[in-house]
């Protein structure tokens, strides 16, 4: 007898180990090597504890009050410190949390904000073309108006973009509701779905929204 008896079970054991290892690797890659894990949840500590919850949520400032170039530019700009000072020259004018902003406004130095949403440089995303065609901020950024600290809410992965590009009608809304993050077609979920379907198709047709899924739509 060349092989001991236990080797009879070796194929089964190896098979089980291989199957388990394969399933483990597949599960691990799906869970951890996608932007749903690597990007979503990113919440950097900002130099100034600015709360979107207070400004956009409670005070009801429109997103464009600060991000004023978003309808005209590919880039959703951060406001200059002068925009902050339009109110904060009076409101909380000696608050230590705003020291950096006051200094920035006085000396024309940048506030070192940390960028949260950052698609790779080989992706050409244009804010204006989305915002001006009825794609709401909330679709990619989540409920920023409820965030005290801005958090990377969605994955912004390629499949995330494609899901919407393949079916714009399911995500579009009237252009004047783009910055109303809590807006819905209807408070009744079934009715909202029905309207999204029927009105969404009309908006897509009216604004000549194309379902762009070619590589060069985003990678130029």
């Amino acid at each position: 007898m060349i092989f001991p008896k236990w080797t009879n079970s070796l194929p089964l054991v190896l098979g089980a180990v291989a199957a388990l290892a394969g399933a483990g690797v597949a599960a691990g890659v799906t869970m951890y090597l996608t932007p749903k894990y690597t990007r979503a949840g990113y919440t950097p500590v900002q130099p100034v504890p600015f709360s979107h919850n207070i400004h956009a949520g409670q005070l009801g400032l429109d997103c464009r009050f600060c991000h004023n170039g978003v309808e005209r530019s590919w880039f959703a700009n951060l406001p200059g410190a002068s925009t902050c000072m339009n109110c904060h020259s009076v409101v909380l004018k000696d608050d230590p949390r705003l020291a950096i902003v006051r200094e920035s406004a006085a000396n024309n130095t940048p506030v070192p904000w940390v960028q949260v949403h950052k698609v790779p440089d080989y992706v050409y995303f244009n804010h204006s073309v989305h915002v001006d065609r009825g794609i709401s901020c909330v679709k990619c950024h989540g409920r920023v108006d409820q965030m005290d600290e801005v958090r990377h809410d969605k994955s912004l992965s390629m499949s995330f973009c494609l899901d919407c590009h393949r079916d714009p009608a399911a995500n579009i809304r009237p252009t004047d509701k783009v910055t109303k993050l809590d807006w819905q077609w209807s408070t009744n979920a079934a009715e909202a779905d029905r309207l999204q379907d029927s009105e969404g198709k009309k908006l897509v047709e009216h604004m000549k929204v194309e379902s762009l899924t070619s590589c060069s739509a985003c990678h130029r």
Binding site: K36, Y37, A40, Y42, T43, V45
Partner: peptide, 9 residues
């Protein structure tokens, strides 16, 4: 997935 992290992606 989606749990808060402070470090860049």
């Amino acid at each position: 997935q989606g749990s808060q992290m402070r470090k860049p992606p």
